[in-house]
Write a protein that binds this DNA or RNA. Sequence first.
DNA 1: TGTACATCAGTGAACGCGCGTTCACTGATGTAC
DNA 2: TGTACATCAGTGAACGCGCGTTCACTGATGTAC
Lengths: 193, 193
Amino acid sequence: MSPSRKDLSHDRIVEAASKAIRRAGYRGVGVADIMKEAGLTHGGFYAHFDSRDALIVEAMARAGQDNIASLTQVIERRLSRGGSRFQALVETYLHEAHMARTEDGCIIAALSSEMTRQEEVVRDEARRRVDAMVAMVHAALPEGADADEAAVVTATMVGALQLARTLGGKAGRSLLAHTRQTLTERYTHITPH
Amino acid sequence: MSPSRKDLSHDRIVEAASKAIRRAGYRGVGVADIMKEAGLTHGGFYAHFDSRDALIVEAMARAGQDNIASLTQVIERRLSRGGSRFQALVETYLHEAHMARTEDGCIIAALSSEMTRQEEVVRDEARRRVDAMVAMVHAALPEGADADEAAVVTATMVGALQLARTLGGKAGRSLLAHTRQTLTERYTHITPH
DNA sequence: TGTACATCAGTGAACGCGCGTTCACTGATGTAC
DNA sequence: TGTACATCAGTGAACGCGCGTTCACTGATGTAC
């Protein structure tokens, strides 16, 4: 069945919101602005969602899935040029381009310090996003690495991206570079245990 | 010169704000609530600060300094029970107690993903906070470690604390434990280069 | 194929609330003589 | 030591604005016959 007109609108709203929250934070953009970005007026919002938070939950899921999908795609492309899967991930995630653009980047780096302050439904989705990212990192690590290790690596990447964004400029780029180096060194020529 | 009545009020406002922003985020608590916590009414606010952001800047500085001071103090106490300075830092920063209480914890872990979205004055102070924390971590690392390494370690600690808070409960505690282990292992029995 | 009606998706005005900021005023403290 | 006045710190009402949410209404699309 092809998507109805309403489905298409719904989709555009979620898409706009997924970018808006990454750019401006959970409370940075209002319902009216999101609707406008989706080419609609704010009055129709509640025909699509029970509340603003209900949209936020969908937007987080969308942002996380899209980001993981696009990371995976870039990794595949890099792999054809040689190097390990993990190296490709680290170089893509900790790239200057990711530092500059929050809007279509990692939702966790964009929102993590605000996550604990959200309503329970939103926090639930936040946990799912973290789990999904840890799983993605785990899949990129050399065989033998366990999920706990993947979680620590995830924390390192997320923390570095955030601090780099805060520092900005040269200092930010330098932190990204050193984190890339530290992580790739640690997971290159490793003997699976 | 002993502090005037106004100085004392000013101090209480900054103190209340430093806890409020760590607990609730940059926009989580209003001027009126902060004044109330300081035992005052909101009308007097602008006799103390030019704007809400001016208070935020002072509150961040206070929060960062207080947190570093109290970390340093706890580290000294732990040191007397043996172990390295770095190990003491890691165990204190990545402790469950720090995961549970944001209010008097690390300001960077509490706010990092919101920092890039603030006005320039606030971002400036944010950079200073990051620099101060990296310096503190640097001072705790074994001799020979450079500032870049300290920045990567800082990113790991901040990222881990944030993800642990988001995950909460058992998963959160487990991430803290594994991060502690990873970091202490890496910086124990190391030969200074 | 055409007409009448129901449903659907979206519009735009309005409501209520919270928040940063301003301001006229008050009561307490300090100062001049 | 006491009186008059100025200054200081804080009060509380009010303003303007933005935002989430509601709702009566409209125009387009789909359906029954």
